[in-house]
Simulated assay, not measured.
Amino acid sequence: MSDIINPTAGGDSRPAGKALTGHTGSGTAPETRGRTSIADSVVEKIAGMATREVPGIHSLGSGMARTLGAVTDKVPGGKPSVSRGVKVEVGERQAAVDLDVVVEYGVAIVDIAGEVRNSVITAVERMTGLEVVEVNITVDDVHLPDEEDEEEGESRVQ
């Protein structure tokens, strides 16, 4: 690697293994030129999509967030929010994720929580390079087979 210091070359007295910072130019590796910042909203979308891909997850968001989301989704031009029910904290190298989910009736909540954690950690770490330090899951509701979805139900107001 060109950014590792060799104490025997050129008389540099810094210990080997310390990365140089601030170097630019044609002699440095492209991945070390500049800084990449990832917005919280990007990680929220990735975590939201990874959660929805897990079988047994009915929806995301607490009761009020789902209700408000269903109304906003019906407004002309409104789009469903992929990040509804997802909150993240993103640092320089790490991220923490909080999820509010609704599960399908009959699924083992402990098992599905493990699957969601695995899915979210894998997706976020693969796509962003951030280390996911925790994924906290709150199960807000259980969707029963005979319940109508708020999103699919007919609105009382027209």
Rank of each mutant, 00 (worst) to 15 (best):
M1N: 08
M1E: 09
D3I: 10
I4M: 12
I4T: 13
P7T: 15
T8P: 01
A9D: 15
G11K: 06
D12M: 12
R14L: 08
P15R: 14
G17W: 05
G17T: 05
K18M: 13
A19E: 10
A19M: 14
L20C: 05
L20P: 03
T21H: 12
G22A: 08
H23A: 06
T24H: 08
G25M: 12
S26K: 15
T28A: 08
P30M: 11
E31S: 10
E31W: 10
R33G: 00
R35I: 14
S37I: 12
A39R: 14
S41T: 15
K45L: 02
G48S: 04
M49F: 07
A50K: 04
A50P: 06
E53W: 05
E53P: 03
E53T: 11
I57L: 02
H58S: 08
G61A: 07
S62Y: 03
G63M: 11
A65P: 07
R66Y: 04
L68H: 10
K74T: 04
K74G: 00
V75T: 14
P76S: 02
P76N: 01
P76I: 00
G77L: 11
G77T: 09
G77H: 08
K79M: 13
V82M: 11
V82S: 05
R84Q: 12
R84N: 06
G85E: 01
K87M: 05
E89V: 13
E89T: 14
V90D: 00
G91H: 05
A95M: 03
A95D: 01
A96G: 08
A96T: 13
V97S: 04
V97I: 15
D100R: 11
V101G: 00
V103P: 01
V103L: 14
A108C: 07
V110P: 07
G114A: 07
V116M: 06
V120A: 03
I121N: 03
A123S: 13
E125W: 02
R126G: 00
R126K: 13
G129T: 10
E131G: 07
E134P: 02
N136Q: 09
T138Q: 09
V139G: 01
D140G: 14
D140R: 15
V142H: 00
L144E: 13
D149Y: 05
D149F: 03
S155F: 04
V157R: 15
